[in-house]
Nucleic acid binder design. Sequence first.
RNA 1: GCCUCCAUAGCUCAAUCGGUAGAGCAGUUGACUCUUAAUCAAUUGGUUGUAGGUUCGAGUCCUACUGGGGGUACCA
Length: 626
Amino acid sequence: MASNPLIEIRNFRLEKIEKLRALGINPFPSKSHRTHYAQPIKDDFDNLIEQPAVVAGRLVSWRKQGGLSFGTIQDQTGRIQLFVQKKSLEATNPEKSCVGYPDLSLMDVGDLVEAEGAIFRTQRGEISIRVERLRILSKSMRPLPDQWFGLKDREQILRKRYLDIILNKESQDRYEKITLMVAAIRKFLNERGFLEFNTPVIQPQYGGGTAKPFKTHVNDLGCDMYLAISHELYLKRLITAGYDKVYTIGRYFRNEGIDKSHHPEFSMVETMTAYENYEYNMELVESMFRHVAKTVFGRTVFKVGEHEVDFEPKWKRAFMADLVQEQTGMDFRNISDVEEANSKLKELGVHEVAPSVGEAMVLAFEEKVEPTLIQPTLVYGHPVEISPLAKPMESDPRFVERFEIFIAGMECGDNWSEQNDPKHLLDTWRKNYKPEEKESGDFHALDFDFIEALEYGMPPTTGIGPGLERMAMIFTEQENIDDVIFFPMMRPSVSKLNADLYGIEKGATSFGEELVVTFDELASLSESGGLAPETATVTLQPHLHIWDLSAKEGSWKVSGHVVVEGFFMNGTLRIAGYTQVYDKKPDTASANKSFIEQAIQQLEPVMKKTFPNARIKLEEPTGGCV
RNA sequence: GCCUCCAUAGCUCAAUCGGUAGAGCAGUUGACUCUUAAUCAAUUGGUUGUAGGUUCGAGUCCUACUGGGGGUACCA
């Protein structure tokens, strides 16, 4: 067992925990008596010199040299050095739960500790605590990754972000800034008279955008629901209710591709403002970005990829058709025929075929214009075909009152004057609805409950929805969305080591689907071709439980199942249904033997016959007394 | 979904043409009263992601799988 260095270290530390307990010291007390944080002590050293202080945090380094030791504590604000002298450190004392000099070996780098003493500066100039009492706040059992080289393994950084934060100040600062960014947005909107509401994340009918949803089930209501792909239909109900300025900072779930700028679960600040149109939002969103840049990050120029983006100057506002004309020389406003529009697209080297002139223009825009929009730009006047929820422009109803924000070629928010004519929405939906597209998420059923709300009358309204992750990427100058999401989505996995340590049956495997069938079901399913192995080797792992039923029934029950690997790439097949009753307690070996005789030897011929090409491998049984 | 690269000790990395798996940090033991990547001495630690294959011999070559990265597609 202890052949592994991590397990060895962990065992040493578990022993230290017991030694602390033996000394009468609780290795996991409930609170500390912190009076000062690290960085403020350094910032205000002149006024604090020789003042008493209690600091608390993680011990991140420990340099012992005989009668004098130096440690470093890291708290949320920064680091401060501990100066620990043998002669002035209070002896181990259970009453004060402090650890004395001879017992310092019970402390390890990684432990959470508390140090009490005077603030001073060492001969070498380091602001420190001259420690008089040292307490353990939480004993750490696992070694931290290398202090100097940090955590480089990308997978570990993403799976164990907390380690990245402990070791990497830049990461810590980044996530702190992101929460401050959200706070600044709240303050900005609140000061402008907006009210924040919670809107449902689990929705009976997804709407407000086109995206594949995540489906879930509500047991008590006995029906399927969806995770929100958008919150806007609920914000509009709030507008209908009579609140004129509302917003939500919501979670959005879209069951689509994951890449450097897309994550299935993301955030938006979505607003709705009544009695205004999209021009109001141009000002709102521009001011919001500038406000966040200045108040949280203290500057307006940011590096995005190889570009520098400046939020200070007034943002460029441009009509989409004009931009397309500028870049391509083609004015789609003068084209009325779809075929002509598509042939123009081909000239541009776009081989996708658009179903309408408007959509052709958007393709040309995405292909030729989007990458050129580096400085913050508001592009307005989308074709009506792609904007069913927006209001057409009075001057030219082929286009709608809608704008998108582009920063460094990246789309950072969508905004429009909301279509509040329910009959218009209904007609648009009827015209476009294809029931067969519903399941794929390409198109979806209308939220009729929302239509009804609109029939009571919703004032003219406009909303914005900038994505918070995209915003965070720009402001923290990150190129990967995983570096602004603290817990990015990953396939679940259990390391072999943890599987051993925690007694998990199978390590290093991912959790997937589990199918449970009986021995008879397997035989019939296999023969009918309903089940077939996907790999050349099929592993049979018998698993037994021995149940003590003596209290009730005066007997022992052995139940077993076989975990079969090889049938599903991403899951396990479990064959259950074996039960045997004994009068007295059976020993594990004989129970296993009986199980194998009765079950496996029944199973093996069936599998060999049905799957002649598969290699059947039988593993040692596991399990035991419950 | 497709293409491609990566996986060696707890962490960071070596290992020549296919030929005995090594180092630093961390850990353990000891020395040391101004260190700060402390230093010095000794020492523990490995089924090279998993399962197969080729070979006298595989960390290295081949196949499949798992996990991750990058690209691309779909997608606000």
